[in-house]
Nucleic acid binder design. Structure first.
Length: 546
RNA sequence: GCCAGGGUAGCUCAGUGGUAGAGCGAGGGACUCAUAAGCCCUUGGUCGCGAGUUCGAGUCUCGCCCCUGGCACCA
């Protein structure tokens, strides 16, 4: 199948959007980071030279406004929020390789270099940007955005003035045709396909140039210096958000100062973003790169938004959850599993605690956790914790009683069926991840969880254990159950990494290796004689009041 | 208003024109290795509404109703 061959060992560079440090992270930020982390972990398991970049978009006047509102000096503020974000992602087991902050000198160099290249290509020109300017927000508004009384939407006492100011513009309009052609040639550039239509639609209406700078005097100064990346050759201007922010994807892999690293990872294989910034990533960004003569990213993966308990996530109403606290409460695996299994990546979804608990208990504790527990427990009880031989199954010697299903089924068929499901489950999981369809990926893995639980019930090892003549068969059954679990630890590792590690420890397996998905997913990897640990619940049930 | 995507069992959703599915939930059963978990069975839907095409439509066409998202420099 496509997934298994195309993703043969290579490199994989994945990014998430960089967030504004205008407040601490909330649960809405976490879907994207977890999804990207799952993809990154998956590619590492496939053996790819993987690089995963995340970070913060600090060069914004919004950030200064937030700092001021909190009465904190700007630098202190961004450091504080920076720590809050990294702490949250640490608690969610997000394994980024590079944490980028756009206030880094390296990023200044990268965005200035990109600007120069676009300029050299004749795509930067000076124009006039006009709008209603609210000094409290440091933001321009259009007529439609103001209140009917003409006041600022956020500051009812302020009546913004019409201001025109000199600005540098990027000639996006020049790229309408090239972008159109590009999307035609690369139908998979935007995934899922839903979002492709919207972008192409905008393209059809033609593109407008956009401003890429702001005069320094219209922004606040920090430590006597303008906040942002100075425009090369014109210190009176700083780069304006998108031109600066998007460039972080280049900075993260060493553009332009580490050419060998840049060559190694660029172009990005996937930019994972929220639906609100689709246009910038699918139109502005490719055009900027075309202008600078840099290869375009392979794909942009767009996810939907989340509501929280049915309501919009909103700082003003306080309807937020700190992802770090959530991880503290339920564990990173529970949160990650719930996000990936219950919240659609493509469409909008709702985050609800009750559903998280439901999912956890039903899928993780009851299905997967119990499968491990009963298997390890029986190997402990019947084989003193030493993994038995996977001897060729012998047809059960139960001559007379075709009454129960198990005794009338033949062992060879059961064993072969389990192996077949194990293989199919791995393929389904991989295919789902590669399509950004995590729900179906997990559903694929759970096909094996269910089958293995059924297999155990059908083989009834506790009955085999009472008959010394069935000793070999008993061993084979438990081996097969354990081997299913070994495969599952690889399949689920991208989603629930620490649980996968705990499961492997109980199974007496070493830590999961880079490339394991490519090299260790063939049936029969478990070695007889392996010493298992004592069975211990990996997913203790969450008891609810009712 | 325009564009896109949805409206299928209590919930979340899957369904290449040919007798409506899964998981969860609910009810029951047989077991006992296991986290009172697992396994088996059952329950449960006028597939948004109305026409049309077709031997036959959840599945195609048209109209209508409702929901969500997008309509450009705004997480």
């Amino acid at each position: 199948m496509r997934c298994l061959q195309e993703s043969a060992v290579g490199k994989y560079y994945i990014t998430t959007a960089i967030d504004y440090p205008n407040g601490p992270p909330h649960i809405g930020h976490s879907l994207e980071k977890v999804a990207a982390d799952v993809a990154a972990r998956y590619h590492r398991l496939r053996g790819d030279d993987t690089f995963f970049s995340m970070g913060l978009d600090e060069n914004s006047q919004h950030v200064l406004a937030a700092a001021e509102a909190n009465g904190t000096p700007a630098r202190e503020w961004v450091d504080l929020i920076d720590e809050a974000f990294r702490s949250a992602w640490r608690k969610l087991d997000i394994t980024y390789d590079r944490w980028i902050r756009t206030t880094e000198p390296a990023h200044f160099h990268a965005s200035q270099e990109l600007f120069r290249r676009a300029q050299a290509n004749g795509d930067i020109y000076k124009g006039t940007y006009a709008g209603y300017y609210c000094p409290r927000c440091n933001t321009f508004y259009t007529t439609g955005e103001l209140t009917p009384q003409g006041t600022c939407p956020d500051h009812p006492t302020v009546t913004p003035d019409w201001i025109e100011e000199g600005n540098y513009f990027f000639a996006l309009s020049k790229y309408t045709d090239r972008l159109t052609q590009y999307f035609e040639k690369h139908p998979d550039f935007i995934v899922p396909a839903t979002w492709r239509g919207e972008v192409v639609n905008v393209l059809r209406q033609g593109l407008r140039d956009f401003s890429v700078s702001r005069p320094v005097r219209s922004g606040k100064l920090v430590d006597g210096k303008p906040w942002g990346v100075p425009v090369p050759g014109d210190p009176d201007h700083v780069l304006y958000v998108w031109f600066d922010a998007l460039t972080n994807y280049l900075t993260a892999v060493g553009f332009p100062e580490e050419p060998e690293r840049f060559e190694r990872y660029w172009p990005a294989d996937a930019h994972v973003i929220g639906k609100d910034i689709t246009r910038f990533h699918c139109l502005y960004w490719p055009a900027m790169l075309m202008s600078a003569g840099i290869e375009l990213p392979k794909s942009v993966a767009v996810h939907g938004f989340m509501t929280l308990e049915g309501d919009r996530i909103s700082k003003t109403t306080g309807n937020i959850i700190d992802p770090g606290e959530l991880a503290d409460e339920f564990g990173a695996d529970a949160v990650r599993y719930y996000l990936m299994r219950d919240i659609s990546f493509e469409r909008d979804g709702d985050f609800a605690r009750a559903n998280l608990i439901q999912r956890y208990n039903s899928d993780l504790a009851n299905d997967l956790g119990n499968l491990l527990n009963r298997t390890v427990s029986m190997i402990g009880r019947y084989f003193q914790g030493v993994l038995p031989e996977p001897v060729a199954p012998v047809a059960p010697v139960l001559p007379a009683a075709p009454s129960s299903a198990a005794s009338s089924s033949d062992a060879t068929g059961l064993d072969a069926g389990l192996q077949r499901v194990a293989r199919a489950a791995g393929e389904a999981t991989a295919a789902g991840i590669e399509r950004w369809d995590f729900d179906s990926a997990l559903d694929g893995a759970w096909q094996l969880v269910r089958r293995a639980n059924q297999y155990i019930d059908e083989c009834e090892p506790w009955k085999l254990a009472r008959d010394p003549e069935q000793r070999a068969r008993l061993g084979a059954v438990l081996y097969n159950a354990a081997e299913s679990l070994r495969l599952l630890t690889i399949y689920v590792a991208p989603f629930i990494p620490s649980a996968a590690a705990k499961m492997r420890a109980q199974l007496g397996l070493p830590k999961i290796e880079h490339g394991a998905w490519a090299t260790q997913t063939t049936w029969g990897g478990l070695q007889a004689g392996t010493r298992l640990e004592k069975a211990q619940p990996v997913f203790p049930r969450i008891e609810t009041a009712k």
